[in-house]
Nucleic acid binder design. Structure first.
Length: 1032
RNA sequence: GGGCCAUUAGCUCAGUUGGUUAGAGCGCAGUCCUGAUAAGACUGAGGUCUCUGGUUCGAGUCCAGAAUGGCCCA
């Protein structure tokens, strides 16, 4: 006996029980242990940042991450899976800052870094617990007992080992990086924070400035262009000194000017112009911007030339900086020169852009490219550094007017106005941000750019366009990775620097190495490598007698996650630590990773970059890149919008399988999609309930007939219906296998849905009577075995996708009959398709039978004749002779479905249209005509069926069991009485009536009154009671 | 400002190498079937395939541009 299954089901409640079963019996652990020694399939778990409660949009990647490993495990692979948690970084710090009401870094310092970091740790650990609960409830199997946690001492030590390797390969260097900086908070802002604070109505000065050409330009350096600009070669001087006209909205940056940039391919012009003061002068600017800048009437063209010819021309500096202001790697020349740059646009300004590498991203990168120095004339509080000027020590915005006055006095100001435009402000304190070049540590990824690109060509991306699109472009435009942060809660950068000679540096590879340094201080027994403890560790410099102290920076949290292939095993590179190295070696390349698309520049990149830098190879083979989940209105889910759907509301109502199935099948994985709970409900009703009803149907009848798959032998050849659904089943197995092998759970799920629809709405529908009949013949047995095989195989096929319902079905259908079968469906082998069971001709014939039946129902409906009314014949026209032969074989299915006596075929559609007394439907070359003539005999049969239906309804209304035998009573007029008597055998058989009696007794039975086709009838039913002693 | 992706029925999505009248599910209206019944079947309404050009005998599909939304980067 199978456990009884009600068609009414609460999936969510069942799932909790199933999860309990897995936990108690260690099914997950067994699923790994039982494949010990088999070839390994490796998953890398991209660690979620545990800086908040997980939302519904986080479940998508959890689910996709789970499906493939489950499938591979069933296929026989050894698939250990280590969970990971990303714990460091600015988001965590910001959360704690919010709790404490802090807005500046100095508040953190006053509060105490030790205490601050302790709060960060606590905050993260609390969220990890929430993530664990959710992951388990989703049915995602991953080892959360032994996770890697990026803030663990061992993990940090491995990161140190990696940096140590990179450092001694010469891949770590210090350089400047321009970051949005808040002068009041004294901190850099992330791009996300910058985005929070844009204002598009910020008033700013807008000034045009003259940069006079230098007298010291050398003709042999610049070739022909000087003459065009009015240089007298003979006298070696200007006929009239021209000026470049440039434009800026930040006058204070002019003190840090090191170059002017022009667009190489645009046309520039030398013009004789009338200045706003009415004086004549020679100016150089882009030809396209002459009218806009100077006014139509105010200029006369002297010469024109492409921008690239201006390259190298010297001009006079506006301000001579103090020598201490000049920093960076570039060359400080005696005079500034013109350079070319791609970013110079003809949309605004003059086409000549003033370059201050210290205060602009483009400027800095251009400086890097053209070997220009960085000049810092402003300090981190936004005040002008002293240079003997009136604006010494002033805040930049207050310095602006003073600088404008100065330029005006020196005739260098062409025009000064005020404009409003978009400018970023600090989202916390409202101060205007400045872009500021700060000393930062870099990893020289550009040194391995070719290897990064070559490695990518070996990776399979799903969807494919990411490979050479977003990810490939990112690699093509690779810049060095600025990987240090001036923060607190992060992996500390393991570089120590000598107090006496800052050029003496030492990159420490492990905590052991640190402990072995001479005169080491501050390294206790339970050493926490976080700040501030690590900042207290000092040792003696190996090159002098100075004290070595750690540099203040911590690492970009993306470094932590990119280091996981190494650090998750606490592996210290190139040091044989036995098991740690062995674990690393076994998992050196991931077969599969899966995250959302925003990780192309995040985890996907840092993983790929570190692997390439360290090992010269990619560390993942296949990657599914998921689109984002939006809310029902198409907006991004975010905490600040307050539109995040709590996953528990779905899990408690519709359940995990429904959510999983929705996430897996509702849209292509790479697309964005809108989420609403009603769609999960739809999945539940359309797919899960259909499957469950089929399962429930099977169990109800199998129990009535005491069907036991273990004790009986399946009949050799089943009916057409059986062979058809088995053929569909094996086709399904090969399709699912193909889809999952190609990392396409969506395609796999959609195929399953199609199959379940066939199974429920044709196989079971057409087989019902085979299960009802009372005798236990081979046909019935064949039906049981067929449906049993379908359901059991289905449970294995859907196990990776919908693990709970799969387990539920498997336990009841398999474990109860075969106690020696694997303890769980997830310990089974994945089904293998048997091509010999696939019969393509039968499949196409069956699908045609369905189509023809559908058309037949349509024809009946058009004629207004109920299906319950038997009809004499249908006439069918197929497109091909072979189709007709196929249908002839399956005629009984169509006859039953359409409730007709006879099926006939014709070959011409015209004949069909000319049939009398028929309802005709044609579609796509097929046609069916239903003969609408109802003879007396057919009418009687129809009435009998109505009687049967009434009695069936009454059985249920009276609360009888499906298998109960009954006694039926009736009281009717002569016509109905005649029908009932005439067809009593049929009525008795259909309704399990032992007797059919008239009239209806007054008491002790269930009675209803009905009106059938206009005839009144009173009917009654009561249970049949065995009366062994009574003889009739 | 740049790159990538998407846009097909009220909603969520299919639509293969360009080739009959563009489909499904849900929802809506109606009818039916019912010994799986909180299912199921049939019919109907609902489409300028976002827009504008182009290539072609033929475009939802290929090309160019625009709009809207999303992501990433400035």
């Amino acid at each position: 006996m199978f456990k009884p299954v009600s068609s009414k089901v609460n999936f969510a409640q069942n799932e909790v029980r199933v999860a309990q079963f897995w936990k108690e019996n260690h099914i997950f652990e067994q699923s790994i242990q039982q494949r010990e020694g088999a070839s390994q399939f490796t998953l890398y778990d991209g660690p979620p940042t545990a800086n908040g409660s997980p939302g519904i949009h986080h479940t998508l990647s959890r689910i996709f991450k789970d499906v493939i490993p489950r499938y591979k495990a069933m296929q026989g692979y050894h698939v250990p899976r280590k969970a990971g948690w990303d714990t460091h970084g600015l988001p965590v710090e910001l959360e704690v800052e919010r709790e404490l009401g802090f807005t500046t870094k100095s508040q953190i310092e006053e509060y105490g870094v030790a205490q601050f970091n302790a709060r960060c740790r606590k905050s993260v650990l609390q969220y990890i617990t929430e993530w664990e609960k959710l992951t388990e409830r989703l049915g995602c199997w991953i080892d959360m007992e032994h996770p890697y946690v990026t803030c663990d001492r061992d993990y940090i030590e491995s990161c140190w080992g990696i940096i140590n390797q990179l450092y001694y390969k010469g891949l770590v260097y210090q350089g400047y990086r321009v970051t949005p900086h808040c002068p009041r908070c004294g901190t850099s802002l992330s791009s996300h924070e910058v985005a929070l604070g844009y204002r598009d109505d910020a008033p700013n000065p807008s000034i045009h400035i003259r940069f006079r050409l230098s007298k010291r330009n050398q003709p042999h350096e610049i070739q022909g262009i000087l003459q065009k600009l009015g240089w007298d070669v003979g006298k070696a001087e200007w006929i009239e000194i021209p000026s470049f006209l440039a434009w800026t909205t930040t006058p204070w940056t002019l003190t840090a000017n090191v170059a002017l940039a022009v667009a190489p391919e645009e046309t520039y012009a030398l013009v004789q112009a009338r200045s706003p003061e009415g004086l004549s002068e020679r100016l150089i600017l882009a030809k396209a911007l002459l009218d806009k800048t100077l006014g139509q009437e105010n200029w006369r063209l002297l010469e024109e030339f492409p921008g690239k010819e201006l390259s190298g021309i010297r001009y006079e500096r506006l301000y001579e900086p103090e020598s201490s202001f000049v920093v960076g790697r570039g060359v400080w020349a005696q005079e500034n020169r013109v350079v070319t740059a791609d970013f110079v646009s003809m949309d605004e300004g003059t086409g000549i852009v003033h370059i201050a590498p210290a205060y602009g991203q483009d400027d800095y990168e251009l400086g890097h490219l053209r070997d220009l120095p960085v000049v810092h004339t402003v300090d981190l509080e936004g005040n002008m550094r002293p240079a003997g000027k009136p604006w010494d020590g002033k805040f930049i915005k207050e310095a602006d007017p003073l600088i404008i006055d100065d330029l005006k006095r020196r005739d260098l100001l062409y025009r000064s106005e005020e404009i409003t435009h978009t400018y970023p402000f600090c989202w916390r304190c409202g101060a205007p941000l400045l872009y500021y070049a700060k000393m930062t540590w870099y990893i020289k990824t550009t040194a391995k750019k070719d290897e990064l690109i070559a490695g990518n060509s070996k990776i399979n991306w799903y969807p494919e366009y990411i490979k050479y699109g977003r990810f490939g472009d990112w690699l093509e435009n690779n810049v060095d990775w600025a990987f240090s942060r001036e923060r607190y809660w992060g992996t500390p950068l393991n570089i120590w620097q000598c107090e006496s000679h800052p050029e003496h540096k030492d990159c420490i590879g492990s905590i052991t190495e640190l402990g072995a340094k001479p005169e080491v201080n501050g390294l206790g027994e339970d050493f926490d490598p976080h700040r501030p403890f690590v900042d207290q560790v000092t040792f003696r410099c190996s090159k002098c007698e100075g004290t070595m102290r750690r540099v203040p920076e911590v690492l970009d949290a993306w470094f932590d996650s990119g280091a996981m292939p190494v650090a998750q095993w606490h592996y210290l590179l190139f040091e044989d630590q036995g098991e740690n190295k062995a674990q690393f070696d076994r998992n050196r390349v991931a077969d599969y990773i899966c995250e959302a698309v925003d990780q192309t520049r995040g985890w996907f990149y840092t993983l790929h970059a570190l692997s390439t830098l360290l090992f010269d190879r990619p560390c993942f083979k296949n990657v599914i890149c998921l689109g984002h989940i939006l809310d029902a209105k198409g907006e991004k889910m975010s905490k600040t919008r307050g539109n995040v759907v709590n996953p528990w509301s779905i899990l408690d109502n519709q359940g995990a399988d429904a959510l999983r199935w929705y996430m897996l099948t509702a849209a292509p994985p790479g697309n964005v999609r809108r989420f609403s709970p009603t769609q999960v409900t739809e999945v539940m009703r359309r797919f899960l309930s259909t499957l469950w009803n089929t399962y429930s149907f099977f169990v109800i009848y199998a129990n009535i007939d005491k069907f036991n798959p273990a004790s009986e032998k399946p009949p050799v050849a089943g009916s057409d219906l059986d062979r058809w659904i088995i053929s569909e089943l094996h086709q399904l197995i090969s399709e699912i296998t193909l889809a999952l092998d190609n990392y396409d759970p969506t395609g796999a799920g959609r195929k399953v849905e199609e199959f379940v629809d066939y199974l429920s709405n044709w196989y079971v529908r057409r087989s019902r009577r085979r299960f009802w009949k009372s005798e236990n013949d081979t046909d019935k047995l064949s039906a049981y075995f067929t449906l049993y095989e379908c359901l059991v195989t289905l449970s294995k096929l859907i196990a990776p996708l919908a693990p709970f319902i799969a387990e539920e079905i498997y336990q009841n259908l398999v474990r109860s009959a075969y106690p020696d079968a694997p303890q769980s469906v997830h310990l089974c082998d994945f089904p293998i398709a048997d091509p010999s069971k696939v019969d393509d001709r039968l499949v196409s014939a069956s699908r045609l039978a369905m189509k023809i039946s559908s058309m037949g129902r349509s024809a009946r409906s058009k004629a207004g004749i109920k299906v319950r009314q038997p009809l004499s014949r249908v006439i069918i026209k197929t497109r091909l002779k072979a189709e007709q032969e196929g249908l002839e074989c399956l005629a009984s299915q169509v006859l039953e479905e359409l409730n007709v006596k006879r099926i006939e075929f014709i070959s011409e559609e015209e004949e069909l249209m000319n049939l009398p007394l028929s309802s005709i439907v044609t579609e796509g070359g097929y046609g069916i005509a239903v003969d609408t003539e109802i003879s007396e005999e057919l009418k009687e049969e129809g009435l009998a069926r109505e009687i049967v239906r009434c009695l069936q309804n009454m059985r249920r209304n009276a609360g009888f069991d499906i298998a109960d035998y009954i006694v039926s009573y009736y009281h009717a007029d002569s016509i109905l009485s005649h029908v009932i008597e005439h067809l009593s055998a049929y009525i008795k058989q259909e309704t399990l009536s032992r007797e059919l009696v008239t009239p209806v007794p007054k008491l002790g039975i269930y009675v209803e009154k009905h009106r059938i086709n206009g005839y009144e009838v009173v009917m009654g039913v009561r249970k049949w009671i065995e009366q062994p002693t009574v003889t009739s």
